[in-house]
Design a protein around this nucleic acid. Structure first.
Lengths: 235, 235
DNA sequence: GCTTTTGACTTGTACGTACAAGTCAAAAAG
DNA sequence: CTTTTTGACTTGTACGTACAAGTCAAAAGC
């Protein structure tokens, strides 16, 4: 039972992208080049590229080629408006707690699998600011056995997802989210510099990844007064 | 300049589904049947089915066939948990204002195109309840010229999107959303039966459709105390 | 009656070919 | 020097073929 040919090409190119061999905006080799390097037909190459397109890794342009794209934008995840991809924006991230071993917190909203509960947990939390204004508190928990020597590695471009992709070849393949409007508790009001009881957007997320034993559980608390949370998707 | 063959098949099948010729769970004709009815090769039929899969209209099963699916579930839209598709749940919808001609409201958060502003506006608003508990106020505005005799038509299964699809063949192709946690104003507090100033989840949505002159602008106000808003997506 | 096998169906993968159509720069024409 | 044309490159569409692999019921075997 050997692996399918298109899947081989797909995984090869994906790994190249993940490792940063191609930057965002770079062109992949042309279909005919890929045909000859892999000794397969264009039909099969195109199937591989179709899959990568569907997964959001590349974008294809008639007459020009396939370019590597910023995958985050294709995921339809919720984001603080003008965050992450914001160019020239004055965005900063403060680590409240760096990555460290911890217990699986009861604060986690989604159900944690038995397998995960039996394994060590890594936790870290950050405060996201625009200018001097704190807008989001972010708590993250995940299975520690999947991330060897995690705490030592610097975040790639400050992005946890990019770090996962480039260093561990783990990709987000899905998510579940729940959103609530709540009154700010003492801790979060303090950190977000808002009065106690202010309306806060609480988002619980479970990210599913390409490793079925590795999910990311996040609890986010957002001050949406000046920076609303948003997303968009297109077919 | 004639239309592409796979696109013809794709649009034909899509129309059949939209018109309700196939129910959710029904099998489409097999690929070989489609080949002979359209006098095209399987490659082209499969391309058409690939597109319909990508758009969320069908699901394919190896060895069995392609079945029609509930498209809403593939869209990654935010939904009140246990709403819409909830089976056996005690969900009800009350029209606060039935579909009627109105002005484009300043309450609309997203920018309205010039074309739309120059044309008449249809507005309706609903209150969504679980049991006796109101959980969401929903205001909708849209271009009236695209919906002839709209107010007279009963909503298909109580769903506005299904009505659009089946009666007008208009499909949602994308959306932009912004979310904020706010204090309840007098009107919304009243309708949602919560104290004035309670935290409320305010969602502004612009739905893009297959008709570029027809967008749906919605402002939603949710009481998330008992029924959080959620979504999920998978690759 | 029960289990196993067969066979006809389905979709999935992969081959090969041909031409259409978009892109871009170098060559030809003015 | 500027404009137009050509041509080599890219991806897109569509043809045709072959076999692999999953599904399911009817036929064969016990």
């Amino acid at each position: 039972m050997k692996e399918k040919r298109y899947k081989q090409v797909q995984d090869f190119l994906k790994l190249q992208i993940q490792k940063g061999y191609y930057d965002v905006g770079d062109y992949l080799p042309s279909e005919n080049e890929l045909c000859s390097t892999f000794s397969i037909t264009r039909t099969t190459v195109r199937k591989a590229l179709d899959e990568l397109t569907r997964e959001g890794f590349i974008e294809r342009h008639h007459g020009k080629g396939s370019i590597v794209r910023e995958r985050r934008k294709s995921l339809g995840l919720l984001n603080v408006k003008g965050f992450s991809e914001a160019v020239g924006e004055d965005v900063s991230t403060i680590f409240l707690q760096g990555p460290h071993s911890d217990f699986w917190s009861p604060e986690i909203h989604f159900k944690i699998s038995e397998k995960e509960l039996s394994q060590p947990c890594i936790h870290f939390s950050r405060l996201r600011c625009v200018g001097e204004v704190p807008v989001m508190i972010e708590h993250n928990w995940m299975n520690g056995t999947c991330l060897k020597e995690f705490s030592d590695i610097d975040f790639v471009n400050g992005s946890f997802f990019k770090t996962l992709s480039q260093h561990y070849h783990i990709e987000i393949v899905g998510s579940e989210q729940e959103l609530r409007a709540e009154n700010a508790h003492k801790d979060s009001a303090d950190l977000l510099k808002v009065p106690l009881g202010s309306p806060i957007l609480h988002i619980s997320v479970k990210f599913h990844t390409s490793n079925s034993n590795f999910n990311i559980y996040s609890e986010l608390y957002c001050n949406t007064n000046n920076y609303p949370v948003g997303n968009s998707y297109y077919l």
